[in-house]
């Protein structure tokens, strides 16, 4: 039972407005797509499911379970899963073990630098409820409060078999077009930012202009902006400039492209 991947516990999704405020490229829902579009989407999903680059975030424990998964013992390249070294190129963010407040900040920054569709896997009990480190001032308890998590692997430690199982489940979900948790970050950015601000203080913000991206890519929803995102604007105008002082990032020079 412990090795069984649990479906992430996410809030009931709010109603979303496809196309958002009418800017950028709209994201049509499944019903209104043309046949041509549907075939293309299915083909893209087919390819996405068979080519996954994993960024391992291993500051907690459990990194030792991954070498057998990747290398000759189980060889995940058989199903097209390869380790990657930068968030820009990666599709999956695999987070092993506990996250302290300090590392959680880095995880959020890495997550925002990844390009969608992107998937987050929580590895080990610590990402679900804090695990054996729950009674601590410095470790966060639930990963899916701060970034949208696709799947969790329960257990302490999950064995490579469990990692494989969750990756196969993710492949199945992507193939069926179900693994869309990353869009939730755009649609309900206020919720995630609120939780982040609760830990890091009201001055917290990241170099990535998530609201702008949500508008541009058509993932703008009623939950994108709210009381928490208003704090971003109040914190000295440009959110990016503030964050730059603390985290010099290349995302600053970036601009969005469709």
């Amino acid at each position: 039972m412990t090795d069984k991947p649990l479906k992430s516990h996410v809030r009931p999704p709010q109603d979303t407005m496809p196309g958002g405020a009418g800017q950028g490229c709209p994201a049509p829902d499944a019903q209104t797509r043309s046949i041509w579009r549907r075939i293309m989407d299915d083909f893209a999903d087919h390819c996405r499911a068979r080519s996954l680059f994993v960024l391992h975030y291993c500051t907690g424990c459990g990194a030792i379970e991954l070498p057998p998964t990747i290398t000759s013992r189980f060889d995940m390249e058989r199903v097209g899963i390869t380790p990657m070294v930068t968030p820009r190129q990666a599709d999956i963010l695999l987070i092993t073990g506990y996250l302290s407040l300090k590392t959680l900040k880095r995880v959020i920054l890495s997550y925002e630098q990844m390009q969608g569709p992107k998937y987050v896997l929580g590895f080990g009990s610590c990402t679900i409820n804090g695990g054996m480190y729950w009674n601590s001032y410095a470790t966060m308890k639930r990963l899916d409060q701060y970034i949208p998590t696709d799947l969790f692997i329960a257990g302490c430690m999950p064995r490579p078999e469990a990692v494989q199982q969750v990756l196969l489940k993710l492949i199945e979900d992507i193939d069926a077009g179900r693994a869309n948790a990353w869009q939730d970050y755009y649609r309900n950015y206020d919720f995630y930012l609120g939780n982040q601000q609760r830990l890091f203080g009201a001055g917290w913000n990241t170099p990535t202009d998530v609201i702008g991206e949500a508008r541009h890519y058509g993932y703008y929803g009623p939950g994108t902006e709210g009381e928490h995102t208003r704090l971003l604007a109040e914190g000295g105008g440009s959110a990016a400039r503030l964050a730059h002082a603390e985290y010099p990032s290349t995302a600053l020079t970036g601009r969005i492209k469709s």
């Binding site: 516990h9 679900i128 409820n129 804090g130 729950w134 009674n135 601590s136 001032y137 966060m140 308890k141 639930r142 409060q145 609760r198 830990l199």
Partner: peptide
Amino acid sequence: FNTRKHVEETFEWVD
């Protein structure tokens, strides 16, 4: 310093 109290005030528990 009451760690448990701090945890309960700061974090939400899993359902």
